[in-house]
Write a protein that binds this DNA or RNA. Sequence first.
DNA 1: CTGAAAGCGCTTACAG
DNA 2: CTGAAAGCGCTTACAG
Lengths: 334, 334
Amino acid sequence: MAVTMNDVARVAGVSLKTVSNVINNYEFIRPTTKQRVLDAIDELGYETNLTARSLRSGKTSMLGLVLADLSIPYYAELASDIMKVAWARGYRVLVEQSGNEPDHEKAALQGQFRTLTDGLLFIPLALDAEQIIAAAGKKPLVLLGEYVQDPRLDMVLIQNHRAAAAVTTHLLAGGRRRIAVVGAHDGDTTGSGGLRLEGYKAALADAGVEYDPALVVPCDWRRDGGADAIARLLDSGVEFDAVFGLNDALALGALHELLVRGKKVPQQVAVAGFDDIDEARFASPSLTTVAPGRAEIAERAVELLINRIESKTPAAKVQQPEAAFELRVRQSAP
Amino acid sequence: MAVTMNDVARVAGVSLKTVSNVINNYEFIRPTTKQRVLDAIDELGYETNLTARSLRSGKTSMLGLVLADLSIPYYAELASDIMKVAWARGYRVLVEQSGNEPDHEKAALQGQFRTLTDGLLFIPLALDAEQIIAAAGKKPLVLLGEYVQDPRLDMVLIQNHRAAAAVTTHLLAGGRRRIAVVGAHDGDTTGSGGLRLEGYKAALADAGVEYDPALVVPCDWRRDGGADAIARLLDSGVEFDAVFGLNDALALGALHELLVRGKKVPQQVAVAGFDDIDEARFASPSLTTVAPGRAEIAERAVELLINRIESKTPAAKVQQPEAAFELRVRQSAP
DNA sequence: CTGAAAGCGCTTACAG
DNA sequence: CTGAAAGCGCTTACAG
């Protein structure tokens, strides 16, 4: 029913192989032959069947991207960038939402999903390094995010510690001394939350300001989590003059709750976040935050993964490139 | 190299067909045979090669989704919903970003992309109905969004006119009389902008309030577009006591600019939007808007498309179901 | 209930 | 530079 290469070959009066050569831009084809084939393709409206190509070649030219949920702005913006970079290199991206569920993450790592892709970009949230290594097949895998760190796995790193320290130092420079941290447990040292909390502590120590665990409020990393956390903090009577949301969603939720409660931002309480999602620029007041280098993360991750896929020598050393960050000072913490 | 059904058949001591039957849950298999096959699958770690299945069966079990850009919250949230609904029905979703480019949209409609999917969900922004009909192949196609309306095409509709009228009526009920509209040209009657503008006009007429074209400000449908539009309106000296952003991004950009300029919202100027993106709830003040029924849109679109794909009688009448909307009153326009 | 054969539409060695 | 043949790993009639 569909037009095949055979039809093109017949119309052009050449063999199947010649059509294939033309389609794949094989160099040494007589120009007249090539033109005959191109004319036949045009005439018949032929489209390469990518499924057949994949089956035979063993390459799908698709990358998998596993993340929690596209409705979370940071992931959506990162996915958008990754798709553009991949597209420019001739790959499509098949997105899988894990919903933060260990079972979904495991399924994405090993199930049939992998047979559709040549390699996987994975933002783990539920599985640890051992589980990932156990579940992952032989196809290339590159991790994003910081819930998992392991010397055996390729991954693109964010400078969580230094970027969080930079935010904290900025708040301290603005005269703040009681900086609440929203989105971590006191004592966390791993994962995005733990690493950022450590950066915060380091900056306090550098400035000679004492660390107070009462200022550290754990909560879900969502807008309503940040709002709830601030509500609890205000209700508890703990004094604070600044809030560091460990991501922008938390900071924006916190900002919202502060304003609802009649606090002046930044006069009474300064607010800063982490991620620099698009929304941060247009919050009111606009949100001071740190850009973790999203474009660079997308670029490096795709490049690393494609290099692994196309490399003839798969035994290359584990790579863990690090993206550059940048502080973005706005109204919420000038 | 990979484990194939042949390997499973050999280990289980049955024929290829029997393995296939087990995998595809064919009913009439002796339980002991089935168990032997399942054991072999387990033992060998066999995974179905989806590419091979697609080639043979002519079905990819993938739906294409063409939208402008995932970094736009409304699209990201809609994509997330669509993927979940499709997943529940046994389909994956392959997202393609058109960047609002006619060439990209055309490529998504006809190119090799179509050979990877069984049907397409398409949010057109650049092509018109004629171009879409000309470019689309024979595979099922369902349109979303309202830039294109045509009786020949399946699509899921939003009640733009009535929902926009409801927002306007709400603002009028709050005592506002000079309601600026951000995101349309005076005279637009088609596309999301035109339809919503018409709804606005209808509500004004119902209330006996005169329509003033000076209050209608065209701009890009993005946060900065809304901010710019309000800046221009304020600079022009036109008086207004409310702003209706034709989507939430516009309304949030407008809100931001109003606050920057020292206007009190909602005391001096009320603000309302359209879409009810997640961010609207957590803006400060929170944004009054209308929810166009995103979950229902996703549900209906996927259902309609899958029905077309799986239907034996493809000659069924064009379908254009309509989603229910709901006004969400919040602080920006109580 | 199960088997042996054909074939989906390509690419890939192998010849020439 | 081009051809004829094999085969990627499945599913699908067709038998029995």
